[in-house]
Structures are given as structure tokens and as C-alpha cells.
């Protein structure tokens, strides 16, 4: 079964990349002295497969290629992960990450991303807007008769914003099949666990009722992420992939903790975390 072997190799390679992205994200947040480690670690496997698993079509040398697939991070606080990934993907040198969250950052590596940074499509930081923006891009693709797809990562807490459901209705109305939303369902918000803050369940039923082609996966199982992201578009529905994840995934003392939403690791925490992420 040569095919399976190749696939297994590919998956373990992606898992390696995800580990490296987790390490660099934490170092970047640590160096900045502020940022959001928990939500960066929960999205890391999904983002890794998008950028390095052959899902997204992009050319870092030509970040404005009109035919590129679009990637939006609507949960904009995971910018440590976002910039780390863009650097690893070749949009800018990794050294630039040193200016993350620092004044006069040459590539504008702000606490929340802005399109001045190569590879970034739109500003973020106010939750709930990214799905609508992604849908606007998807409509633009249709008008231009281009085949690119638009991928947007949403946080679970973000689904408490009403605008997400406005956009969900819009994308179903316009049958925007080139739009793929991925929910990083890490179950934890800044304040509280999502369930207690405002429960999202039954979440699959909600998306289905809104007219979306709905999948639910383990957001840390690279094989499952990879297979699901490769499924061809639904003929007339936008797609949502609800990825069950763990906030702070990979670092035992961060996992599932509200306390690691918006706090940078100390020197000691970083050292411990990096040891676990091998």
C-alpha cells in the first residue's frame, strides 16, 4: 500500500511542522511580552494543514496574485500563530517576528493583523466580522469568474456574535460554495468556558439549519483535518468544518485554561512549554 505510506509520511511531516509552528508562536509571544497563546495553539494544526498540506494555493513571492486562495483569521487575537505561519510559508523573513507587537514594526506585525503585512487580507481584532468579509471575497471570485477558495478560521467564542449568523444566512442565500469556514472549537473564551459564557450547542444543528454543508472533526488529528480540507466543494452550499480543539493544545499547563487566553509565557513557562513541544 504505497499510497498509504506516502500519506502517512505526509501527515507526520505536517505534524512536525505544526510542532515547530507552536514553538515559534510561543517564542514570538514570549518575546513580545504579550499576546494570545491559548487560541494560537488550538488553531495550529488546522493552519498548518492549510498552508503546508497543499490546501491553500498561494505564492509568497506574489502575495496579491488575483488567483490565490484567500485565508482569513477572524479570531484575530491568534496573530502570534498567524505571523509565525506566514513567515514559515515565506511571506517574510522569520527575523521580522522580532518586531511583533513592537512600535515601528516594519511589516506592521500588530497585536491583531492588518493588510499592511504581506499575506494578510483584512484587519481583524473585532470578533464576528471575518465571515462576512470572507463571503464578500467569495462573491468577488464569482463575479471575476475565478476559481479560488476563501478559507476563514472562526473562534468558538466569536460565534456568540450575531453577525456570524447574519453572514451564515447570506452565504447560504448566495450559494457561496467557494467559502469554507473552520470553527476552532476550543471551548474556552477569555472570561469563562464557552459553554457557561453562552453555550453554542447544538452547534452542528445550528449550521445545518442555516443551510451549510457541515462537518465535525478532531481539530488536532492531522489525518482527519487533511482529509476533510481536501473534500471538493458542495454543489450549492457553503461549508463549515467544526474542529474540536483544546485551548493551549500541546502545553500541558495551558490546556483548557482560561488563564492562558491573553497572557504571554514567562521565561520559565516558555522553557517548560518548549520541552513539551518536542
Amino acid at each position: 500500500m504505497e499510497g498509504t505510506t506516502t500519506a502517512t509520511d505526509e501527515i507526520s511531516k505536517l505534524e512536525e511542522i505544526a510542532l515547530e509552528i507552536r514553538r515559534t508562536s510561543l517564542r514570538t509571544i514570549h518575546r513580545a511580552g504579550s499576546g494570545h497563546p491559548g487560541g494560537s495553539l488550538s488553531s495550529a494544526d488546522i493552519v498548518t494543514d492549510l498552508f503546508f498540506g497543499g490546501v491553500l494555493k498561494y505564492d509568497p513571492k506574489n502575495p496579491n496574485d488575483p488567483d490565490r486562495d484567500r485565508f482569513l483569521l477572524s479570531k484575530g487575537h491568534a496573530s502570534g500563530l498567524y505571523f509565525t505561519t506566514l513567515a514559515k510559508a515565506g511571506f517574510f523573513p522569520e527575523k521580522e517576528l522580532e518586531s511583533y507587537r513592537k512600535i515601528n514594526s516594519p511589516l506592521f506585525l500588530s497585536g491583531h493583523a492588518h493588510p499592511k503585512t504581506p499575506g494578510v487580507e483584512i484587519a481583524s481584532g473585532s470578533l464576528g466580522q471575518g465571515l462576512s468579509v470572507a463571503h464578500g471575497i467569495a462573491l468577488g471570485a464569482r463575479l471575476d469568474k475565478r476559481n479560488y477558495k476563501v478559507y476563514v478560521i472562526l473562534g468558538d467564542g466569536e460565534l456568540q456574535e450575531g453577525q456570524i449568523w447574519e453572514a451564515a444566512m447570506s452565504a447560504a442565500k448566495f450559494k457561496s460554495t467557494n467559502l469554507i469556514a473552520i470553527v476552532d472549537y476550543n471551548k474556552v473564551c477569555q472570561d469563562n468556558i464557552t459553554k457557561d459564557l453562552k453555550d453554542l450547542e447544538p452547534l452542528e444543528d445550528k449550521w445545518r439549519a442555516f443551510g451549510w454543508d457541515t462537518y465535525r472533526i478532531d481539530g488536532h488529528n492531522m489525518q482527519e483535518i487533511h482529509q476533510t480540507l481536501k473534500i471538493p466543494p458542495h454543489p450549492d452550499k457553503p461549508r463549515v468544518i467544526i474542529a474540536d480543539t483544546i485551548k493551549g493544545k500541546g502545553v500541558s499547563f495551558m490546556e483548557g485554561q482560561t488563564g492562558w487566553h491573553g497572557v504571554a509565557p514567562s521565561d520559565e513557562d516558555l522553557a517548560k512549554a518548549l520541552k513539551e513541544l518536542q
Binding site: G128, S132, A134, I137, Q163, E166, S170
Partner: peptide, 25 residues
């Protein structure tokens, strides 16, 4: 084909417009 009635959801409309603008519209 160039008209998008987004329904009564102004925030969604404004952000959809922003997305369209990034594609040169």
C-alpha cells in the same frame, strides 16, 4: 449579478462590501 441584497443585516453588508473591495470591486 452585481447587486447584493444582504437582507436586514447592516454589519454583514458593510463587511461583505469590504471583502468585495479587496478583490478590486
Amino acid at each position: 449579478e452585481r447587486f447584493f441584497n444582504m437582507g436586514i443585516s447592516e454589519g454583514d453588508m458593510v463587511c461583505t462590501a469590504a471583502g468585495l473591495a479587496t478583490t478590486g470591486k
